Amino acid sequence: MWLNYPNNPTGAVADVGYFKEVIEFAKSHDIAVMHDACYTEVAYDGYKPLSFLEVSGAMEVGLEFHSLSKSYNMTGWRVGMAVGNADMIEALMVVKSNLDSGIPNAVQYMGIEAMNITDEEIDQRNAVYQSRRDRVVQTLNKIGLEVEPPKASLYVWVRVPNGYTSAEFAELLLEERDVVVTAGNGYGPSGEGYVRLSLTISESDLTEGLRRIEGWEIPLKN
């Protein structure tokens, strides 16, 4: 079972009760749990995302993966790690050792520098993302879209207006306001009815994008 919390694309987060249910399910069905935790250092309003391995029993059933991609703005550099059940780590190493021979030295040195960044600097970075999140949510709410501010991750997950599919609303935003969003159905059937906005664009692009949709009267559709 693959999990990802804080989640991309929805920004959803998991609590202890949820992870306990996952652990019990994994034990009763004899399956492994793989938790992608790459957004745990991107959180807002004082929220601290939970590690799957903090929950009793998790080490018996799974692994947790982390990455420098989101925590240290190293997306695409492919620096990551896995911790958890020893037998699963051993099996993972068999697969990994047959895929490549390791991370290039230059990238390793850059990763070392990144991990020397202080918590205060991470907090400052998150404050930038939180400010962007707040601006996006405020603007979307003003034009009548249903938006909950995410507690973590780099995305805002937005329900589309009644009558629209994800693709139709994404196309409408592009044609009428010259704004690009990601249609939720691209993430699978459960994403239908939503679009995803990213907080990773520049301040100037974000400001311009929000300006384009401010005051927009979304066409009604039966």
Rank of each mutant, 00 (worst) to 15 (best):
residue 194 Y to V: 04
residue 121 E to C: 04
residue 148 E to W: 03
residue 107 V to E: 10
residue 193 G to I: 06
residue 110 M to I: 08
residue 192 E to T: 03
residue 128 V to P: 12
residue 162 N to V: 08
residue 90 E to F: 13
residue 117 I to D: 05
residue 170 A to Y: 03
residue 139 T to N: 07
residue 206 L to T: 11
residue 81 M to F: 15
residue 84 G to K: 06
residue 189 P to L: 06
residue 134 D to A: 09
residue 203 E to N: 14
residue 168 E to T: 00
residue 191 G to Y: 07
residue 163 G to A: 10
residue 118 T to H: 11
residue 157 W to G: 04
residue 133 R to A: 10
residue 97 S to I: 03
residue 136 V to M: 15
residue 98 N to F: 14
residue 135 R to V: 00
residue 196 R to I: 00
residue 186 G to D: 12
residue 154 L to C: 09
residue 137 V to P: 13
residue 175 E to C: 01
residue 94 V to A: 06
residue 129 Y to I: 00
residue 204 S to P: 06
residue 184 G to Q: 01
residue 153 S to T: 00
residue 132 R to I: 11
residue 186 G to F: 15
residue 171 E to P: 06
residue 109 Y to C: 05
residue 167 A to L: 08
residue 120 E to W: 02
residue 136 V to G: 12
residue 86 A to V: 11
residue 191 G to I: 02
residue 183 A to D: 05
residue 85 N to L: 07
residue 111 G to I: 08
residue 133 R to F: 13
residue 148 E to G: 00
residue 209 G to T: 13
residue 89 I to W: 03
residue 96 K to Q: 08
residue 193 G to N: 06
residue 187 Y to G: 01
residue 158 V to R: 03
residue 81 M to P: 04
residue 184 G to S: 01
residue 160 V to I: 11
residue 165 T to G: 15
residue 173 L to E: 00
